[in-house]
Structures are given as structure tokens and as C-alpha cells.
Simulated assay, not measured.
Amino acid sequence: MAGDALSDLLKTVRLTGATFFDIEAQDPWAIRSPAPSSILPRILPGADHLISYHVLTEGRCFARIVGQAAIPMEAGEVVVFTHSDPHIMSSNPDMRAEPPTADVLEIAAASQQPFALNYVKDGSLSARLVCGYLACHALPFNPLLEALPPVIKAGDAKGDGGWLGQFIRLAVSELAEKRAGSETVLTKLSELMFVDVLRRYVESLPPRQTGWLAGLRDPHLSKALALIHDRPAHNWTVEALAKESALSRTVLAERFSKIVGMPPMHYLAKWRMQIASELLSAGNSNVASIAADIGYESEAAFSRAFKKMIGVPPSAWRLGVRAASGPGIDEAAGTESQPAG
């Protein structure tokens, strides 16, 4: 039975979370995000993509990407900056701020508990936030990141007792009691919270939306995607995927290309290379076994396909080399339209 394409992707791109800041603030206040390059090495060394989130547990505030319109927030809501673009959380939509200094980030990263930032002077608390980060691998192929908007805001409907409300209650409890293991608990909670935000976003997509996430909502395409993710080494053809997905070959090919944005075999080839890149980075398998694991009959065939698509040979990827002058993955992958043999 095929698995869950979203879960498979999140495991393959090594989504991991870290909670750094517990912020209490008094109006007026404003906080700007640190640069991703200063956060990523502390969360997941070697990862190339940072996601920022801010959960408002008390009060009201505004969230905005620098240079864009502000988004109002109320207690119980979370905002996720999916590409960690420079952004500001503030009490007023027009306020400016500077990012935390390097020494603050060093102290926060070394802390065994979420790092407290107190912006309350002599008045009462007007906002409290739990702010954290998620890291993952965007290269060579992460269709989820390509499908997400820069900002997602989510919140439970009043009184429905949804997961976000439970996350906030648990997070506040962990922050208050400061028990052993709080950092780990909050890290796992943040990962679960992100998955729930993704689910809500998928459910909110308009009927004619296209993209990878829209493909997950289509019962036939979600089946085809799950099959590819679950059995990447299988000698898939469009006919075989169509049969398993209860569609004709023509309808599957057309619908997959229109909604997901590429032909099924193109997607299969790119997904195989994503798995291969993770296995190469882990360093526990030789190239020949990786080739077999993702459906290539020989190490040479795999190496040729990998270099053609990624721009460097497998050995160079393993050493962490990215060829700056090599072909972009979307351009190179366009020629890999059939399962490798």
C-alpha cells in the first residue's frame, strides 16, 4: 500500500525544528528576524533552507515581510515565513527594527531552554510570542517549498479545540515549568505544528489551484505521488501509474503535468535524485548501492544521470561541492523524462 507523499517528503528533506525565543513585549515594540545564515548552522548543519514561525500566545501584533503589507495577528494564531524572508514582528505595522546581535544568537543557541527576550519596561505585558525555526534541504528538489507562498497565517476557529490551540497550551506550559527536556518537546511540537499549518493551507486552496500541494488534494494524483514516493526504485511507466491511480494513461499524464507542473516521469527522475542526494550526504552507502536503491541498473548509469541533472557527479555532491556554473536542476532535469535503466 502506498504511503503518504507529504510525510515521505518531510522525512527525505530532513525537516527538523528548533525553538529559540520566548518573547514578552510591551507596546511599542518591534523585532526583526536574524539572517538565515546566522541560524541555519545552529539548527541543522548542512541544511540549505530556513523556515521561521511565530506563535502569538497573548495579545495582538503585526507580522510583515520587510517592504510588504503588515498582517494583523491575535492570540492563538501562528505566522510562518516559509522562506525566512527578512521580516518584522511588531506592535505597530509601520515600525522598524534591527535583527538581534551575534552575541544574542550565540547565547540563545547554547541555551538548554528557549531563550527569553523581555521587552517589558515598567508597564503591563501587551504581547507574548514563541518564536522558532525549522530547517530542511531544498536542494536538489523540494517540491513542497516551491509550492508554498512566502507567508502563511493560521489559527483555530474559536472554540474548536484544534491542534494550534493545543500547541500553544503545551508550549506555554513547557516555557513556564522549564522541566528537563523542554527544548526537545518544543522542537517536536514545532514540527507537528508546521505539518498542521500545511494541512490547513492545502484545505484552503481554491479549486483551480495548481502546484504540488494541489496535487496532494486530488485523489488520483495524490495516489500517483504516493506510489512514486513509496517505491522510487520501481520501474514505473505512465501506464503503470495510471492503472494504480484509476485513470487512463492520457488523463493521468495531462492532469499530472497541468497540476503538479511537470510530467510524471520527470517528477520520478527528480524525486530519485532527491533521495540519492540525501543518501550521499549521509555517507553510509556506496554509490552502487544508492544507484540500486533508486532504480538504476548500474552505478555508471546513475552517475551519468546524477551529473546531468544536478551538475556535479555523486562523489562531488558527497563532498559538499555545488558547481556554480553547472545547469540548474529544472533546466537539466527536463531531459530526464523516462525511468533510468
Rank of each mutant, 00 (worst) to 15 (best):
F115T: 08
F115W: 13
L117K: 09
L117V: 15
N118C: 11
N118T: 12
Y119V: 05
Y119E: 13
Y119G: 14
K121A: 13
K121N: 12
D122C: 04
D122R: 13
S124A: 15
S124P: 13
S124R: 12
S124M: 09
S124Y: 06
L129T: 14
L129I: 13
C131E: 12
C131W: 07
G132A: 06
G132Y: 03
Y133L: 10
L134F: 06
A135Y: 10
C136F: 00
A138F: 02
P140D: 01
F141I: 11
F141G: 14
P143V: 02
L144A: 08
L145H: 05
L148C: 06
L148F: 04
P149F: 00
P149Y: 01
P150A: 08
P150N: 09
I152L: 12
K153M: 09
K153F: 00
G155D: 02
G155I: 01
D156V: 05
A157G: 09
K158G: 04
D160L: 07
G161N: 15
G161D: 15
G162V: 03
W163A: 14
W163V: 11
L164C: 04
G165H: 02
I168E: 11
R169I: 03
R169Y: 00
L170D: 14
A171W: 08
V172K: 14
E174F: 05
E174N: 10
A176H: 07
A176T: 12
R179Q: 12
A180E: 13
E183R: 14
K188F: 10
K188S: 12
S190R: 10
S190A: 14
E191F: 00
L192Y: 00
M193L: 13
F194T: 06
F194P: 09
L198N: 04
R199I: 04
R199D: 11
R200M: 07
Y201R: 04
E203R: 02
P207D: 09
T210S: 15
G211M: 07
L213W: 01
G215S: 05
R217P: 01
P219G: 04
H220N: 15
K223W: 00
A224T: 06
L225K: 08
A226P: 07
D230C: 10
P232R: 07
A233I: 03
N235D: 14
W236N: 08
T237R: 10
T237Y: 03
A240F: 00
L241A: 07
A242E: 05
K243R: 13
